[in-house]
Design a protein around this nucleic acid. Structure first.
Lengths: 354, 354
DNA sequence: CTGAAAGCGCTTACAG
DNA sequence: CTGAAAGCGCTTACAG
């Protein structure tokens, strides 16, 4: 007669305890500390749990009681949407996720800005975080610090109490520039982001960049060039990516091209190569191009790109291991600089004139 | 005199309540329901919180009390480490993360297998999950279902109560095969994973694949070929990626090459093109190649690859929106098939003989 | 506009 | 090997 609304009680430790006739505690132990009860009792408890459709201790409740969630946050420069268009960032996320997984942690992607009232760095439960290529002033970074979470920064700026991991940008850039100098180039342009420069010859005096990464690379490029009294032409955009400003300035540079270009990334190098090609400037015969990163694309394009390789897997592993050390309250190395390596391919050659 | 160990009490709602002289509740309201108290009182509370270094309500405690975490899980076929080497999967993660972020949710990457005693699908606190290219039998999938979490599957198999989203593989594959037939090809090979086939001519009868995606594509390819009474040569590997088995079988195929190849992905197509090139088989003059996906690489390689485009951003959005609908307990479309589009570039042409 | 009560589902010592 | 007690830090109705 009539309908019957079946109120499905949620199954919890209590439900199972009552069913088996033990205390909640013992059920908890059956799941979380198997050595605390007899094999036989445990089997009975697990069977009852299974029968009742219990999926295991509720993770949220467990996180509160234990004071740990098993989740590590990753804040990327911009939104994940932007960061995931960059193969280097993707490779890094991949390496970190893999390393953390081996230790039983999962990675949650945190977007920087507030959306719909939530600020992930403030509102998501986690045990620690990795901050990738992000100024200490960034609001997400500040929120994490306020929570006193263990943090590791990657390609960031030094910041008290936060270990920083990154490649040795200066030395990588130095190798790239030295390579061009050794080939005999003297008219060299630097193409970079995070720097507002419109085809101006510059010495290392007044280079204002907002990015530590670019600051390091500029230092290396300039050092190698200054050793040979070369004053490079600077082509840059204030943005943190390749934008139309940079594209336009690259075009302007190609109106009166140098014999070689140092690009801040492989993608920027490809941009230069494509624009040169469309004007009939041949690479490397008329223009040598050196990139940075050793993006998977670098070896595939033609001519294959000379570049500075960084070991992105090593960087991800180092970040993960350092954070795990922090979580164990072990000593963590405050600053780690990973080596780079010049990879000479087909986009560089002696200048035509020499 | 002597040292003093300062026990730093953790700051909670209670600490602040005592400081300001109100109840914990009111402090909670100051953070979570601003309309529940006077502007003035709220300001005083927030000021006290700030002074005490309170970073906001503890997310873990909030998650337990509210019954929601703000986190959505994503389980990828294999480990994130593997999945992130595939541009298509990366694009999908990117689109999902972006869409979820707009709604205030963060994405946590779940590895499939148990590591260090933790099974993320079972042990991580989350509000729902997206399961990407994963058989319903997968253990992670089962764990999620046992928890009765809202789930959306993507490129999976239909499974009761779980909406599935994917492209129309059969129709995309049909377009690709039809394109070759229309160009006049009759000697056509299919190169695919998830199918154990070593250069055997086959009709659609007994094609055993473990992947729904490949099953759909096989159906489309075969339908177009059968319409013209063409029996293709099947080249496949049982693995779910491009492995050495597949490479070796591709080589064997090229010993007596067909005039055209249908590849299950752009990466497989590139593999075929590279191996053909190294033997002096010219693409497209002697061999036409069609890929699948429209990977970012497809337009960059030379010759540019003819392929079947899928809109990966649309797929990610659809997955996110469907899951969000489930969370709101709205009606969710059980099955969504996204359209594909043939993109003709330079890797296909009429066969030499015609 | 403010607060006392009950509860979210689990775990951590600790005593028996 | 088992359980009673206290607590993790918050929020949700509800009453005043």
């Amino acid at each position: 007669m009539g309908e019957e609304v079946v109120e499905v009680e949620r199954v919890t430790l209590k439900t199972i305890a009552e069913r088996v006739g033990v205390s909640r505690m013992t059920v908890s132990n059956a799941f979380s500390r198997p050595d605390q009860l007899s094999e036989d009792l445990r089997t009975r408890i697990l069977a009852a749990a299974d029968e009742l459709g219990y999926a295991g201790p509720d993770p949220a409740a467990r996180a509160l009681a234990r004071g740990r969630t098993g989740v590590i946050g990753m804040v990327l420069t911009n939104s994940p949407r932007d960061a995931f268009t960059d193969d280097v960032a993707v490779g890094f996320v991949r390496a970190v996720a893999g390393s953390l997984a081996d230790a039983g942690y999962s990675l949650v992607l945190l977007h920087g800005s507030e959306k719909n009232g939530v600020v992930p760095a403030r509102d998501i439960a986690m045990d620690g975080a990795i901050v990738y290529s992000c100024a200490p002033s960034a609001s997400a970074f500040a929120a994490l610090r306020e929570r006193r979470l263990p943090i590791v920064s990657v390609e960031g700026s030094p910041s008290p109490g936060v270990p920083d991991i990154g490649i040795d940008n200066a030395s990588g850039a130095y190798q790239a520039a030295k390579h061009l100098v050794d080939l005999g180039h003297r008219r060299i342009a630097i193409v970079t982001d995070a720097l507002d420069a419109d085809n101006t010859p510059s010495s290392s005096g007044s280079l204002a960049t907002t990015s530590t990464t670019i600051a390091g690379r500029l230092e290396g490029w300039m050092r190698a060039l200054e050793e040979s009294d070369i004053v490079p032409i600077l082509v840059g955009t204030p943005a943190l990516t390749i934008d139309d400003v940079l594209r336009e300035r690259i075009d302007r540079m190609l109106d009166d091209p140098p014999t070689a270009v140092l690009a801040f990334s492989d993608l920027a190098a490809l941009e230069v190569m494509e624009r040169a090609k469309s004007r009939g400037i041949r690479v490397p015969e008329q223009l040598s191009v050196v990139g940075f990163d050793d993006n998977p694309l670098a070896a595939r394009v033609s001519p294959a790109l000379t570049t500075v390789r960084q070991d992105i897997d090593a960087k991800g592993d180092a970040a993960a291991q350092t954070l795990l050390a922090l979580l164990r309250e072990d000593e963590a190395t405050p600053v780690q600089r990973l080596p780079t390596e010049l990879v000479v391919r087909d986009s560089t050659a002696r200048p035509a004139s020499s």
